[in-house]
Design a protein around this nucleic acid. Structure first.
Lengths: 208, 208, 208, 208
DNA sequence: AATGAATGAGGATTCATTCAT
DNA sequence: AATGAATGAATCCTCATTCAT
């Protein structure tokens, strides 16, 4: 019993730290953020951070892994939700889900698409892996669509890559500065751009 | 006249430093690069860097400005080169020119799209300005195309933004790791994705 | 009576900690050893160490005191064991006993002759005291031998000092790295070196 | 010219640092000494230490190497100085020279015989090498003496080892606390102890 | 102009010790 | 008694920047 409480408490503290770290890293960037900043934001003492994480890098890695899981969960759930019978439906749903997720979690966007690329070699491999996983998830939706003839027959990886790039980068810019556009409007625009841009035939979607 | 020689010499040294800095910053990232790294790469002494630039940040700013100029020049030239009479021609030319430029200068891509976003508040404003300039340049091509009815009638800034995002991000990924695709192939794909994606009507471009 | 059990139990735990600490300190040295290391080696929890000892230093002091007692006991017993009638017999027995003791307890040697000298001022006094006690014990054997005319008539403290130095240092080196010699062989050599070296007259001991 | 001055100046600063470090390390021990202590003692700024040495460990290594060179030089010179024709003369001269050197440089003694043994694995190899060099030097004097029949026919390495141990340890104790004896007196005592102790026959040296 | 030595603030990490449970 | 989380002072090292020559 006491054990369970302890475990819960430990997990709680850990996630408090993770939350605080997400905020601070997103705001200031990986390099400009100090462990002291994180500790202050989480309202724990300096050394406590090291009780839960081995190093600044380990903390960041944990953060990224959490981002990845959350994103995948969100997209997976969107795909499981029944929509129209349209062959494009899952495609549309996935892109939109990813976009929505990013819009709802600006800090995560910054961490995933901005900071993830400015770290040392060791950690970069880990993060490239996360990004590749994201692209692969998209690819798994692209391939059936290509087989169904609803998406252009270019190399699936290239297609997935482009989608990830566009969605991620748009989200990143929007997380950094307000561009004055409504989130739904942008989502529509991006989804249509992709759906039309990747169409193999003349069945264009009507612009919102 | 000694003055002239001196000025030339100074400009020469400065550009040597800039070249070296571009390489080193691109390879290691802004934060991981030290002034000593730059000096070593440029084969000048440690403190000389400060004769030509006020600070590490100033050096980076100069770098970015050079990137911007070079990119603009390249795109401008592509636009001035006569092509087909197609109303889409300038649009296609500009996108392709930007993409080509990025492919040819991987270090610049990294600096512009990766490091530019992980700096402190002060410098960020400057860099956001550069990026905005890039987007505005694109916008200036988008607007006439929209007026000519060849590009979807979404807010021009949003359109320009998306183009910048897609082209930049694809270039960034390709500069970091080989994705196994041919540059021309990718350029075709991206241009077609955009042209089709942004089409207002059913005039789809044939896929390469 | 529960008290008695408790006391026993406490003493037991204490000695488990002491054993573990001896091993860890000997292996890694005083400074490189953390309380966590000791706790892990003793298979008790982190903070428990502080239930039995006031501080890291106190733990080390306790260790050293134990070393001292054990060494004294061993030498005393050797002196009580009847040997030849030779006036040199106790002398020989004591040196050999000390050497044997050190050979049998490499960790203690390291603690006594290596770590004991690299500590802060406070603890040093305590440890110098222990070492002085060791030298005094030797001196108590030297003096009668000098009075009997079997040991050179140099200041007894200097004589005792030299013996302690030679025996201790040889043992230390042997505890750190194998020199390829047999323990008995070395003991003979050292004893003979001392017996001959300290002889006042021409009654040399035959070399083994 | 300017180069020469610069080199001189650099060497000078380096040796100032080395001197200061020797003093501080000897006084407080390796672990208790901070880089700030060394900088303060050398009256240079904190970071300057790192201009001349890569790390605290590198500084200590340089120190030890210097100790070794100085000791060897001193002993070599003593051996080159012509003395009596006695077959034992070089032997006596070497032991005495080593002892004198240690007496004259208490900090070095502490560094060589005390701190050298409490460091991490990496540096330990280096230091063991230095100590082995010292022992080998002694061995080179012992072997001829054994061949000439003036030193007991025990394994030469064991003999050399014992000499190093006795001389080093006596010097160490004396460097830590005044034992009230005159340096010359102790030197005589140690030399005679060794000469007599290692004699193969009854040709005892008269005690001073 | 150029050099490279000097400076010191800043930051990650460790770890002895305390404390709530 | 025992646990392990919490604390924060201490310390090594880095590196942008300055400065004497």
């Amino acid at each position: 019993m006491q054990r369970a409480v302890s475990d819960e408490s430990k997990a709680l503290r850990r996630s408090q730290l993770l939350d605080a770290a997400t905020r601070v890293f997103a705001e200031k960037g990986y390099h400009a953020t100090t462990i002291a900043d994180v500790a202050r934001a989480a309202q724990v003492s300096y050394g406590s951070v090291y009780w839960y994480f081995d190093s600044k890098e380990a903390l960041f890695r944990a953060l990224m892994s959490d981002c990845e899981s959350a994103l995948r969960d969100h997209v997976d759930q969107a795909l499981r939700t029944p929509g129209s019978d349209d062959a494009m439906a899952p495609f549309r749903a996935a892109v939109r889900a990813a976009f929505e997720f990013f819009e709802a979690n600006p800090p995560l966007v910054k961490l995933l698409f901005r900071d993830a690329q400015t770290l040392g070699r060791g950690i970069e491999a880990h993060l490239v892996g996360i990004y590749e996983g994201f692209v692969s998830d998209i690819e798994r939706i692209v391939v059936p669509a290509q087989e169904a003839g609803t998406v252009v027959d270019a190399p699936s990886r290239m297609v997935a890559f482009s989608i990830a790039a566009l969605v991620g980068q748009i989200a990143l810019r929007r997380s950094s500065a307000d561009d004055g556009f409504d989130a739904g409007q942008v989502a529509d625009f991006v989804v249509n751009l992709l759906l039309n841009g990747l169409k193999p035939r003349h069945e264009l979607v009507a612009w919102g």
